[in-house]
Design a protein around this nucleic acid. Structure first.
Lengths: 337, 337
DNA sequence: CTGAAAGCGCTTACAG
DNA sequence: CTGAAAGCGCTTACAG
């Protein structure tokens, strides 16, 4: 009579099957030469006892935990959430569990999490828009990892992002074709490489089109809705007010819209606004935001695919993956007055 | 000279500190009687070597993994995402890591995940809107757990939800005060206890107010935007068309709005619509959805708090937590014509 | 093809 | 207050 509480272990299976522990292990793993009958017998006994191998013991013995750390600034931010889901789904298929770490954008919390992950022997990490300073890199050296949306300029890491330059280019193409020449820009967080890519693209593209961008047309932001509001607040009091505002996140664009409409402006008659991401709600006709569609779920999936390969020791030749973006024109952009 | 690759283990610390392994372990754990000087010495050596205890080894030895499974149907669904974040944050503070499991609403995947979690010796589980059938309950028996938003009628589990009845009551109070008598209702998924709570409340409250609800005023839905669209499609062709549609999720309400406006109706002049959740975007003036605010983050936090206590073996007397909801009136509801 | 033994890195009685 | 030893549940050379 076994205690009903205790989970059966591999020894229980071995005893019940009248075989050595190692034979059971080999049979279960499907490795080495185990006679077909033996294996079948082992499997049957394991099944009957309801045996489930302890991943904890396996992890200790093999050094591989079958788990991956997923670090993200804010899981509840709609522009991250699909990436998280995409990554988790692919990881699960690859037999890897996801340890979710919501860092809130704090480097300290990020480092704490990373150490916890390392003490749990994670097989790898995915960092979505995380800090990549020296302390972080130090820890990353010891483990396979993929960076998403934020990287270091040296390009030494595996990186998945989206194509910034083409995106900004298509936004400017669209706005200038509507006659806009006074175009402002709301930046993303300074630490973010994708934010600086977009800014650089904006500067280059406006220059190329001989569009003059006064210094006060470029305002700070951090991808949040609130930063959109304050950006709008600053831009709309300018003497030579912009006729269009390019935002680098949908939430920011929504903040700009909200503030501008509260201030009595008509969109798009008085002001055109563009976003970045195409989060689900902005496609509603009530919102109708013109924006750059980013393949958010695909970015998560791609990052997970690359990481899974790295973990399995398969080579991944390409280091940088810049997925394609696409401009979606809706109703927040119109002809310049 | 140590290999730079290998992480230091407790033996390394013991050797370096010239002490027995067990003394180091005791010093680090802060347990038992270890002389202050000894402890200080151990700590210093551990620090110097950069020693981090292996959680994997600890988990195997103690049976406690310090990890918790968080099961959710869809992390990218804005009505779940704050709950996930709230739970993760509180768990992290309690020293528990979160294993994220995106089940996609499939009971099979849920069960697979649960077995994986069990094989990893998780200390507990939080199930957000998950299945709670016999197979699931069987597995739950072996581990502390808290259910969120969906429970079994027997009330045997710890449960965190939101107050459905008062919410529906306030919606009906609001609509009837605007003169609505033809009020339709879009249901949530049938397996969901909160969905059935809301339906029951709707039926009771309309009856109490002597409002007649024809059978075809109550239509199926699953909280998704798409189900809102199809619900609207069905409702708007009825001969005796409703003047108001009560939805049990914001996404559904957005779907209803979208379809109705495409069909040429004016909201709220031709039709009033209410939601449930108050996800962030519906508060924008462009959307302006009248809805029931649910304390989503708090639900996650509460669930995590309860679970953390259960794991620490502290008693939690209250089994059911129904957090308060609040009606937020915006611009999708108006007088019945 | 099968079995006996060591060991992954810890914690915890137990003895001193 | 400190140390020697067993054991958590596995996998993996190694020998047969």
């Amino acid at each position: 009579m076994k205690s009903p509480q205790r989970k059966p272990t591999i020894s229980d299976v071995a005893r019940e099957a009248q075989l050595a522990l190692s034979t059971v292990s080999n049979a279960l793993a499907g490795k080495r030469y185990v006679r077909e009958e033996t294996r079948a017998h082992v499997l049957a006994v394991a099944e009957r006892l309801g045996y489930q191998a302890s991943r904890v013991a396996q992890a200790l013995r093999t050094g591989r935990s079958g788990a991956v750390g997923l670090l993200v600034a804010d899981v509840s931010n709609p522009s991250m959430t699909d990436t998280v889901k995409g990554a988790e789904t692919v990881l699960a298929k690859a037999g890897l569990m996801t340890l979710l770490c919501n860092t809130g954008g704090s480097e300290e919390r990020q480092l704490d999490y990373m150490e916890m992950l390392l003490s749990r022997n994670v097989d790898g990490m995915i960092l979505i828009s995380q800090h990549v300073g020296p302390a972080v890199r130090k820890l990353l050296e010891t483990v396979p990892h993929v960076l998403v949306q934020r990287r270091l300029p040296d390009g030494a890491d595996y990186y998945v992002g989206s194509e910034s330059r083409g995106a900004i280019e298509s936004v400017l193409q669209h706005l200038t074709s509507l006659g806009h020449r006074r175009i402002a820009f709301v930046k993303g967080p300074v630490e973010s490489s994708s934010a600086s890519d977009r800014l650089a693209a904006f500067i280059d593209e406006t220059r190329r089109r001989a569009i003059d961008v006064p210094a006060d047309y470029i305002v700070a932001g951090d991808y949040s809705m609130q930063s959109g509001r304050s950006a709008a607040e600053k831009l709309l009091v300018l003497k030579n007010r912009p006729t269009a505002i390019v935002c680098t996140s949908d939430l920011t664009a929504l903040g700009v819209l909200e503030y501008s409409e509260e201030a009595g402006l008509q969109v798009p008659d008085d002001l055109s606004v563009t976003g970045f991401d195409d989060i689900s709600v902005v496609g509603l006709r009530r919102v109708g935001l013109t924006t750059v569609q980013q393949p958010r779920a695909e970015m998560g999936k791609k990052a997970a695919e690359v990481l899974a390969k790295l973990i399995e020791g398969k080579p991944v030749r390409q280091k940088n993956f810049e997925l394609e973006t696409r401009l979606v024109v809706r109703s927040t952009t119109g002809p310049a007055r």
